[in-house]
Structures are given as structure tokens and as C-alpha cells.
């Protein structure tokens, strides 16, 4: 009984954390699934957004302005990766690694050469905070993060339905065809990377408020968690969620499920130091499931087989 009561007690925290990381995973979805690029910049931007937000807030800037600045900082990081990839011809995966590495120094600079920075929820007007996670009020981070998720999905659903958004989807689906139809593929890739990293930085800014501190190492392994959410969401929901907005929702749900699973194994008594190992194992298994299904169970749903093939194709291209 102890186990279940412990798990139950930790559940709200896992859901809140999952929803905040779900925003980040939606950012990863845009590069990994829509643009068919593996972008590793996010490991850097997942620290940048929080650093910018906490530094600005502790120097008295309004929380919404701080969030906007975090978003813009993320877009800037995406721009750098995009330019490295398109203008300088560096493979996307390497361009992302370069930006991520450079961001480590930049993040330290942003935080005044400190490895981490705290923000006290008593003194600042935070949007989300760990301490409210069990309160039944509108301040509850689960509620706030859910609102952010819904608004983000709505905005992205609208955007990817516009002429520009459609051309970005086409860029990822078939670059040859896109060029033949007069689409500037390089511009769209850069734009997609900027949007994606902006969203990741926004998620980072919320997450740092939630935790009450920004950390220069906050982004380590972030891409893997983002991919985990994307793949879990796809494996579990791809049969019922076909619409683009619902696909984004499945990514957010994927992140929540991921954090519940992690919470489950932690409650079982696993060492937090082993978390990265568990994460890698979970992602590897979920990446393998669609592949195995298509290989060994030929009739097992075209959607899943296709999802697996796409995931695999994404890696090959990278």
C-alpha cells in the first residue's frame, strides 16, 4: 500500500512536469516529424529559455515579458542552427550539436557565469510553481500548463494550415517537390527550426519557474525526452488521432505518460542517478516497437508501420 500511496502523492508533480515538457516535445515534433530534421539544438535551448527568464525576472522584468524574451532567445538559437545547416551546408544533426555546445557558454554568460540561479516564489509572481501542485486553485501548475498546451496547439494548428505553414509541411514531406513548386526550402527549414526552438525555450522558461531555479545543465538529454514523448504519443495514439491538432495533443500526452512512467520506476526504488539510463532504454524500446511491428506483424496496422518507417527515415536523413 505504501507504494501506491507514494505513487499517488507524486502523481500531480509528474503530470505538471509532463505537461511543461510536453510543450518542449511539441517543439521537437515540429523539427523531427514535420520538417524531418533531427535537431539537437534543444539540449542547449532547454537551458537558455530558463536562464533568460530567471535572469530577467530577478532583475524585475514582468513574467510575460520574460517569457517572450525566452521565446525570442530560443528562436535566435534556432536561427543559428538553421544558418549553419542551410547557408553553411553543415548536416542538420551536426549543426544542432555545434549550436548546443556554443549555447553552454552563452547560457553561463546569461546567468553571469553562475552554473545555476534560484528564484524565490515568495518574492516573484511566478506563473507555475512546484509548491502549488496540490492546490485546487487556478494557480495549480497542471491547470496553467494545460492552458499553455491548448493555446499552443491552437496557434500551431492555425499556422500549419496557412499557405506558409503548408509549405513548411511540404518541405519536410518532399523537398524536391517543394522546390519544383517554388517553395524556398532553405528559408522554411530555418523558420521551422526557429519556431521549434522558440517553443522549447518557452517550455524551459516555464520549467525553471516551476522548479524555482535555472540550471546550465537543465537541457542535458532534453532531445531524448522530447523524442520519447513524440514516439510514445505516436505509438499509443496514431490510430485514433489523425488530425494535426490531435497529433500535437498526443505528443503532449506522450510527455505526461513518460513522466508518469519515470515516477513509477522511481517509486519502485530506482536511483535518480540511473534516470538517464532508464530514459534512453524507454526511448529505444518505443522507437523499436513500430519497426518490429512492421517487420514481424505484417498486418498490424498501416499507420503504425508508416510511423515507424518515418521515424527511421528521419534518422537516416539526419
Amino acid at each position: 500500500m505504501d507504494f501506491f500511496s507514494n505513487l499517488l502523492a507524486a502523481l500531480p508533480g509528474a503530470v505538471a512536469q509532463g505537461l511543461i515538457w510536453g510543450l518542449m516535445a511539441i517543439g521537437v515534433f515540429i523539427t523531427f516529424k514535420v520538417l524531418d530534421l533531427a535537431d539537437l539544438t534543444v539540449d542547449g535551448t532547454m537551458a537558455t529559455g530558463g536562464a533568460v527568464c530567471i535572469v530577467l525576472m530577478t532583475s524585475g522584468v514582468n513574467v510575460w515579458v520574460a517569457l517572450l524574451c525566452a521565446f525570442l532567445a530560443g528562436m535566435l538559437a534556432g536561427l543559428v542552427t538553421g544558418v549553419l545547416h542551410t547557408f553553411m551546408g553543415i548536416p542538420a544533426i551536426l549543426a544542432g550539436i555545434l549550436t548546443q555546445l556554443a549555447l553552454f557558454s552563452i547560457n553561463l554568460r546569461i546567468m553571469g557565469k553562475k552554473a545555476n540561479m534560484a528564484i524565490n516564489p515568495d518574492n516573484y509572481d511566478l506563473l507555475v510553481s512546484l509548491r502549488n501542485v496540490k492546490k485546487m486553485t487556478l494557480e495549480n501548475p497542471i491547470f496553467v500548463a494545460a492552458v499553455f498546451t491548448i493555446v499552443l496547439i491552437a496557434v500551431l494548428y492555425w499556422f500549419f494550415g496557412t499557405s506558409l505553414g503548408c509549405s513548411i509541411r511540404a518541405t519536410g514531406a518532399n523537398p524536391n517537390m517543394s522546390r519544383a513548386q517554388g517553395i524556398n526550402v532553405d528559408f522554411n527549414k530555418v523558420l521551422g527550426l526557429m519556431i521549434s526552438n522558440g517553443i522549447v525555450a518557452l517550455s524551459s522558461a516555464l520549467y525553471c519557474q516551476y522548479q524555482g531555479f535555472a540550471d546550465v545543465n537543465a537541457g542535458r538529454g532534453a532531445i531524448v525526452i522530447g523524442l520519447a514523448a513524440v514516439i510514445i504519443g505516436e505509438v499509443l495514439f496514431s490510430r485514433i488521432f489523425r488530425n494535426f491538432a490531435l497529433k500535437l495533443l498526443s505528443v503532449a500526452l506522450g510527455a505526461v505518460i513518460y513522466y508518469i512512467v519515470i515516477q513509477f520506476v522511481l517509486t519502485l526504488g530506482l536511483d535518480t542517478n540511473d534516470l538517464k539510463l532508464i530514459t534512453a532504454a524507454v526511448v529505444a524500446i518505443f522507437l523499436a516497437i513500430p519497426y518490429w511491428k512492421s517487420k514481424y506483424f505484417k498486418g498490424a496496422g498501416k499507420a503504425i508501420a508508416k510511423a515507424g518507417a518515418q521515424a527511421k527515415g528521419g534518422e537516416d536523413n539526419a
Partner: peptide, 20 residues
């Protein structure tokens, strides 16, 4: 229809108007 809509916009500016 989405493919046709992409082709319909060949040579035109692709902005924030409806994709189709």
C-alpha cells in the same frame, strides 16, 4: 487537395492566408 493547393500557389507569395 493539399498537394494541389501547394501547386496553386506556385510563383505566389506564401503568407499567413488560408493554405486552402
Amino acid at each position: 487537395e493539399e498537394n494541389l493547393a501547394l501547386a496553386y500557389r506556385r510563383g505566389k507569395r506564401r503568407g499567413l492566408s488560408y493554405g486552402i
